[in-house]
Simulated assay, not measured.
Amino acid sequence: MATLTVAGMLTACLLQLGSASIASASTPPAGPTAKAVSQGIIQPPTTEQNFAIYWNGAFAEYIAEVSVSGNTLTVSRYPGAYSIIDRWMAGSAPALTLNIGLLDRAQNKVKTYSFYTPILAKVDIARNGQQTLTIKFLQQSSS
Rank of each mutant, 00 (worst) to 15 (best):
A25N: 06
G31R: 04
P118Q: 08
L17W: 03
A2S: 08
M9W: 05
S143T: 13
P29N: 10
A81G: 09
L120R: 01
S69G: 05
L133H: 05
S19L: 14
I22M: 05
L10W: 02
N56D: 10
T132V: 12
G18I: 02
G129S: 14
P29L: 11
T117E: 03
A20N: 07
S26Y: 03
Y82P: 00
G31V: 11
Y54R: 06
A121G: 04
N108L: 00
A106F: 01
Q140D: 07
A7E: 13
L138G: 12
S143E: 15
V6W: 05
V68L: 12
A30S: 12
N99F: 08
N128M: 13
D86R: 03
S19G: 01
S92G: 06
I135A: 04
L4E: 12
T11V: 06
T132P: 01
M1D: 09
L98I: 15
N71L: 13
Q107N: 11
I84G: 02
T46I: 14
A12K: 08
Y62R: 08
L10F: 02
Y116C: 03
I42E: 15
L120S: 01
R105N: 06
S67N: 10
I41R: 02
F115K: 02
K35S: 15
A64L: 08
N108A: 07
Y54P: 00
F59H: 13
A12E: 03
Y116D: 00
Q39E: 15
N108V: 07
F115P: 00
A23E: 05
T112W: 06
Y78G: 06
R127V: 13
I42C: 12
T5N: 10
L17S: 04
G40C: 08
G31T: 14
A106Y: 03
I84Y: 04
A81I: 12
S26L: 05
Y113R: 00
A2H: 14
Q130V: 09
I41W: 05
T74V: 11
L138R: 08
R77C: 11
N71F: 00
S92L: 11
D86N: 06
T117G: 00
Q39D: 12
T72I: 15
T117C: 02
G101M: 12
T27D: 13
N50Q: 14
A34I: 08
I85T: 06
I63Q: 04
V66M: 04
S114D: 03
S38L: 09
K109D: 09
P32S: 13
A12M: 14
N50H: 07
S26D: 12
F59R: 14
Y54H: 11
E65T: 05
G101S: 10
S26A: 09
N128G: 07
P118M: 08
T5W: 14
I41E: 15
N50E: 12
Y113L: 05
V123C: 04
P118W: 06
M1C: 06
I119Y: 09
Q130L: 13
N50C: 08
Y82W: 08
P44C: 11
F115R: 00
Y113N: 00
Q43P: 02
P45T: 14
M9N: 05
T117Q: 04
L138P: 01
A36E: 15
I22L: 05
K35G: 13
Y82F: 06
T47E: 15
A30P: 01
G91W: 11
F137V: 07
N99E: 09
S67Y: 07
I85S: 02
G101R: 05
A30H: 10
Q49L: 07
W88S: 01
S76Q: 15
K111T: 10
Y78R: 08
Q16P: 01
A20R: 11
